[in-house]
């Protein structure tokens, strides 16, 4: 018996449309998720860094009270040097109640922009310090401000890098999941399309009053098998002599 070729043009169309649909769906989900992610991660991480910095500034301010009142500035410097080891903190300075810088971590010196700022203000500010980089600076009063202020500078470059890394990791996860989803969708469509193509070959053979090359379809107990048996039934009714 002559091998009958599978007329797969219709199935390919279905396959392409499904794949395109899957790609489009993932694209829309990916784009919207990315925008939301960038916004959320950026906002939350920035807030978290600023919040941590404020916590550190407050811790130093609280610890400074006793040192300022009872001990010397070497102990104060030793204290802030230890906090400088925390990742992201690039500088710390402490001003007394008259605005004099009594301890700091700057090398080779206190930047002009900070020298000319109001050291008693504890507002959160963004600073661009030539040769040092971009910073978010938070402040905290010492003894409600009557003993001075503590200022902590967080490296914005490092914060941005952390944010980019967090977003990058999420995007990478999304791409991996998306790729697996697309491959799975293709496989599933293919899985559904192949029996359909065989069924079509079977139906065409029946319509031509030929003996179908794939009678095993009749043995299937799924929808394809049921349709094959139905086609066979119709073909038998149409030409009772046929087997």
């Amino acid at each position: 018996m002559k091998e009958q070729e599978v007329p797969d043009i219709k199935v390919k169309k279905l396959f392409r449309k499904t794949t395109f649909g899957v790609f489009m769906l993932f694209g829309v989900i990916g784009l919207s998720t990315s925008i939301l992610n960038v916004y959320t991660v950026d906002t939350h991480l920035s807030e978290e860094y600023i919040s941590n910095s404020k916590g550190i500034a407050k811790t130093i301010a609280d610890a400074s009270v006793d040192i300022l009142l009872n001990r010397d500035l070497a102990a104060l410097q030793s204290l802030i040097d230890q906090f400088l080891e925390i990742q992201g903190i690039r500088y710390i300075y402490i001003a007394n109640e008259s605005g004099e810088f009594i301890a700091h971590t700057f090398v080779p010196g206190i930047p002009e922009e900070i020298l000319h700022s109001d050291p008693l203000s504890t507002e959160t500010v963004q600073r661009q310090l030539p040769g040092l980089g971009d910073f978010v600076e938070v402040g905290s009063p010492i003894l409600a401000g009557v003993a001075g202020t503590v200022h902590v500078g967080m490296d914005r470059g490092l914060i941005a890098l952390k944010i980019q890394r967090a977003i990058g990791q999420q995007m990478w996860l999304f791409v991996v999941v998306g790729a697996i989803g697309v491959v799975a969708a293709i496989w599933l469509v293919n899985l559904a399309a192949k029996p359909m193509a065989r069924l079509m070959v079977y139906a065409v053979a029946l319509a031509r009053n030929d003996e179908p090359a794939n009678p095993e379809l009749l043995d299937r107990d799924d929808e394809v098998g049921q349709l094959a048996r139905l086609f066979r039934h119709f073909a038998n009714q149409k030409s009772p002599g046929a087997s």
Binding site: D72, L73, A74, L76, Q77, D81, I102, T105, F106, V107
Partner: peptide
């Protein structure tokens, strides 16, 4: 020196 020693002398 930017540490406790330097600050001690500075003070």
């Amino acid at each position: 020196q930017a540490d406790a020693y330097g600050r001690s002398g500075w003070a």
